[in-house]
Design a protein around this nucleic acid. Structure first.
Lengths: 217, 217
DNA sequence: TATGCTCTATACTCGGGAGTAAGCAAGCGG
DNA sequence: CCGCTTGCTTACTCCCGAGTATAGAGCATA
């Protein structure tokens, strides 16, 4: 089941460079980890999809766990970058929060991002687990800080910031479980709408009258 | 690592009944599936925790998949019951929604409930997967129906019901990933607060006209 | 041509876990 | 007492997948 994207041509491989090959392994592994689960992903399968054999993979990675850790690390970095980048943009705290969460949502529709939420801790080695927890904790911290900034600014209602972060990231993380690239919404659209929903809440504005909230126009 | 809860006494087992033993197997298996992952859970381990040996398990279940399916089915049933029960109570649609989501959240802090969100489809056999999807679809349908009823009633803002359901159930499902029984909040408290947050949203109410909410000073 | 490095393949080892074979113990009907 | 069933055991088989030993192919230097 060879993929076209593989940098190993069927018999001749020469222009390709080492890190490009590492990347290809990670990309295919990440997809398989998400689709089939980590334990159910054999390196033989990964190799086959790349027109190579398992020992070749061991020229680029020490073992399966190193591949898994690299996938998760890449996903975590993508989320962290997304949030950090939004954070640097000198807008209001609320705008920074919005931008951060939207990008977060988008990353959840991508292979490496999905790894972060579909892989669970027992899949990782002891040491990989530590890095995983650490990366997630940092992202959580960023979101919490943003929330606190918004509360200080008055744009977010004072609340239990920890639980609020779990609620928000839970909704976003879950995207990785149901997102369908062939579905009606792109990652960007999902992010935009879901973040709007989370911020505005589902309850209708107080009075049973004044139904002006409808945006249908 | 024998557990006290096991109905198999170390050498003498007689007062226990078949279905009680089936239940015990499911309970321990569910815990292990959640803690270590499905593939990493060996039936030898499960047996050991119950003071029995693997072949004994095969007296009660045909194979590992049957156990897994039973765990997931039980979790799905708990969620479905929770939502259905709230649905039968003759309150306003909004109150029914609130009650349903709170109970949903609570189930997410229990072993079988956790199974539903921590187990992923590739862990299941083809046939188990079908039942899994079906069960989840039914629950989703119930939540969507509740949302629609609320919108008709005017208590929930008109919105994309499908995406709203994903957002809400995502936040709730994720509880199973971070809930800590030794943490500060009980399942009930988490449900109550998270549902309140989701309904009210995080954004601060529109600022009193004229004055921006610039606090501090 | 020789030496050596990098990349890749064939062909293994080895451990773990699902599932099974076959037998032992205990209760029950005769 | 015998023979049957039920519940459980010890002791396997067997497959799959992680990781390895080893060899060969291509290329660079000399």
């Amino acid at each position: 089941m060879a993929l076209e994207q593989s940098p190993w041509k069927d018999a001749s491989g020469r222009e390709a460079d080492r890190s490009e090959k590492r990347d290809a392994v990670l990309r295919v592994a990440a997809q398989s980890f998400c689709e089939r689960g980590v334990r159910a992903t054999s390196l033989d399968d990964v190799a086959e999809r790349l027109n190579i054999t398992k020992p070749t993979i061991y020229h680029y990675f020490r073992n399966k766990d190193e591949i898994l850790v690299a996938c998760v690390a890449r996903g975590l970095a993508m989320i962290d970058d997304a949030v950090a980048q939004a954070d640097r943009e000198a807008l209001s705290a609320l705008d920074r929060l919005r931008a951060a969460l939207r990008r977060y949502a988008e990353v959840m529709t991508m292979d490496f991002g999905m790894c972060v939420t579909r892989i669970s801790e027992p899949d990782l080695s002891e040491e990989g687990r530590a890095r995983f927890r650490d990366g997630k904790r940092k992202i959580d911290e960023r979101v919490r800080d943003l929330l606190r900034a918004c509360i200080r600014e008055g744009s977010i209602r004072p609340c239990d910031v920890v639980l609020a972060t779990f609620t928000i990231t839970g909704a976003l993380n879950w995207i990785a479980r149901w997102y369908d690239p062939d579905g009606p919404l792109t990652g960007e659209e999902i992010g935009e709408r879901m973040v709007a929903m989370l911020l505005a809440g589902f309850a209708a504005p107080a009075p049973p009258r004044g139904t002006e909230a409808g945006e249908a126009g």
